[in-house]
Design a protein around this nucleic acid. Structure first.
Length: 150
DNA sequence: GCCAACGTTGGC
DNA sequence: GCCAACGTTGGC
């Protein structure tokens, strides 16, 4: 079992939205590295930190679970979607996604600011300077450590 | 709204 | 293959 962190802007799709919908196709990822993590790294049942980005209180807001294998992101084929990619084709899709299933909200959001204050987490991909990936792996030891902060 | 960091694009 | 220009991310 592996662990991941997935960013979402709460104004667009928050942990409460996932709670209400129970399950969601994680569409719109248009970064090759993030795609590769979903396509090659994720397995059903893997743990996911649901991270709120670009908002008043950035941080880990809840837990989710990988709920499907990777499959082509339908939005890349839809000319009306803002995620439409004219360079992709159904025969050779460029972008993949997984479904994500709600597990639970954290009792409180563990903020980015708080995470930065823990020296043991300094090597986390999330905290490395300039990191903008929206999907990234989390070490098992960091997963455990962060949950103990809750 | 600003801007640093980074990815992508496209001319050469 | 280089690299300038441009677009996006996301914290602040």
């Amino acid at each position: 079992m592996n662990f991941w962190l997935m960013k979402s802007e709460p104004d667009t799709f928050s942990i409460d939205d996932l709670k209400r919908k129970k399950r969601e196709a994680w569409d719109g990822v248009r970064n090759y590295q993030a795609r590769n993590f979903m396509r090659d790294g994720m397995r059903v049942g893997d743990g996911v930190f649901f991270y709120h980005s670009n908002c008043a209180e950035p941080g880990i807001a809840g837990l989710a679970e990988v709920a499907s294998d990777a499959y082509p992101d339908p939005s890349q084929f839809d000319p009306k979607s803002k995620y439409f990619d004219p360079g992709s084709s159904r025969d050779n899709p460029r972008w993949m996604l997984v479904d994500v299933k709600f597990t639970r909200k954290l009792k409180r959001t563990i903020t980015l600011d708080e995470l930065k204050n823990h020296a043991k987490l300094a090597e986390m991909a999330l905290l490395r300077k300039g990191n903008r990936l929206s999907v990234m792996p989390v070490d098992a030891k960091d997963w455990k450590y962060i949950l103990e902060l809750e």
